[in-house]
Write a protein that binds this DNA or RNA. Sequence first.
DNA 1: TTGACGCATGCCCATATGGGTATATGTTTG
DNA 2: CAAACATATACCCATATGGGCATGCGTCAA
Lengths: 127, 127
Amino acid sequence: MARAATTTDAFNAVAEPRRREILDALAGGELAVGDLTELLGLAQPQVSKHLRVLREVGLVDVRDDGRRRLYRVNGAPLRAVHAWVAQYERLWNERFDLVDDVLDELTHAAAESAAEAETEAETGRGD
Amino acid sequence: MARAATTTDAFNAVAEPRRREILDALAGGELAVGDLTELLGLAQPQVSKHLRVLREVGLVDVRDDGRRRLYRVNGAPLRAVHAWVAQYERLWNERFDLVDDVLDELTHAAAESAAEAETEAETGRGD
DNA sequence: TTGACGCATGCCCATATGGGTATATGTTTG
DNA sequence: CAAACATATACCCATATGGGCATGCGTCAA
């Protein structure tokens, strides 16, 4: 078996530097293939191919404008990536250690007074 | 040219599901190759190879323990991934829209003195 | 209509992947 | 010391990649 297809998910699609550049460029607003070709200094076919991948994983949307095709970012698929990476944020962010300390103290204090200290975490909005 | 090496950076290393599973497993603490082999239900050589990749990008550290090798997570390299993805957070997080609203109001308040009573058509929610 | 323009596709190819299987290396036990 | 155990490596191979280049197709201009 070879490596998973780049179109498998956002993780794979975004692993390619060029595709990240494209998204970054599109972050400023809609752009046509030609604009990207110029901005990235890459050949048009390659840009189109990268856009195809990004499109297949839903990272960009297209809109026809005469003989041009305007691409636009759609960050939704990145949500999964963000969610996964965020779990590790505590491993490099000092502030999390501080939060841990506080939570630790609270936990101890709660356990001390009674035995029913359950805090329900609120879920973010679904989609 | 083929796809960039998986050992190029965290983006590429983490694009592989199995490697993410390994990191998730290690998130609970040090584990030996054998433990991971069992947890992932993957053959030992494959686990070792994935660990090699993770090691080359610095996502894990190793420690010798007798005839075993204990692996440990090191989230640092993920910081770059997080930073990049975070830029797009506003594209799916509603809370950013709220911030936008506030900024919007402040802007309008300032513009009010200039007598600019124009209501922009609201765009419906995308997804 | 013809031609120029803007993009998407098709092909060719060198390359690394990830799983499978066998084996080398280092460590602990008898 | 030999045998068992824990890992790392070496190979073999089917597969998709990403860039280069040529070309197909729809759209706008003369």
